[in-house]
Design a protein around this nucleic acid. Sequence first.
DNA 1: AATACGTTTAACACATTGGTTAAGTGAAGG
DNA 2: CCTTCACTTAACCAATGTGTTAAACGTATT
Lengths: 124, 124
Amino acid sequence: MAGTDQLSAVFSALADPTRRGILAELATRDATVTELTAPLSISMPAVSRHLKVLERAELISRSRSGKWRASRLEAAPLREAAVWIERYRRFWDSSLSRLDAHLAAVQAAARATDRMAGDPKELA
Amino acid sequence: MAGTDQLSAVFSALADPTRRGILAELATRDATVTELTAPLSISMPAVSRHLKVLERAELISRSRSGKWRASRLEAAPLREAAVWIERYRRFWDSSLSRLDAHLAAVQAAARATDRMAGDPKELA
DNA sequence: AATACGTTTAACACATTGGTTAAGTGAAGG
DNA sequence: CCTTCACTTAACCAATGTGTTAAACGTATT
């Protein structure tokens, strides 16, 4: 999973399109493993393990009722993922702070050029 | 990487704390491989491969200048990741649409209990 | 009681990942 | 030149991820 921290677990869980599909499904309704498996072209054990990954990332919770296990979306960890990504918004959202991004880019480029073309000691 | 689509590549790249650290560094300035390696406790080849992962996800671009290769943050793919996650905002951000989420939850529970053999209370 | 159903676990195969060290490439510089 | 420097590639290893099928488990059904 790369890291063992929460954020890594969440991003890792989101890295699989099947799991993103499951989350999308759960956004509309709680669902059993069988229901989640139906539209997919993989076996139920495979889905079961995807659910375990999502559960470990705390993106879903599961309840038992007789022989059925319902999965429910738990979106809280997505908030932290969103917070992490939002810190980079100014780098893509030029309408919000075009000047910021431009200045940052220019300054970064200048520093990089200095380091790369200029005094080698700056590299240390 | 789970999937070969762009989103999977991006989330997969973000799943590693070392790579997130590299992106954070590049958010402040372009940097060479050596500079990026310095604060880390891994070898330069390891960093080089992390950069390749980031490059494949198009989260960075790289330029050559003599024997130096500078990496630059390219945040555009983060926008799509943010867009994907934002679709779930209402599930965690109760202040924005508490009613929406509540209604969705109630309806989902109702549908789920209907499907689940008619015992009305297990999911509620 | 016996069977069917929903789900998980086990055992296996195979690809990918993330790290290492050592060797290769190509530009810089004495 | 010939070496040094920045970086990449190759070869290898251990661990993890994703899928499979078959077996196990517990509840429902008849």
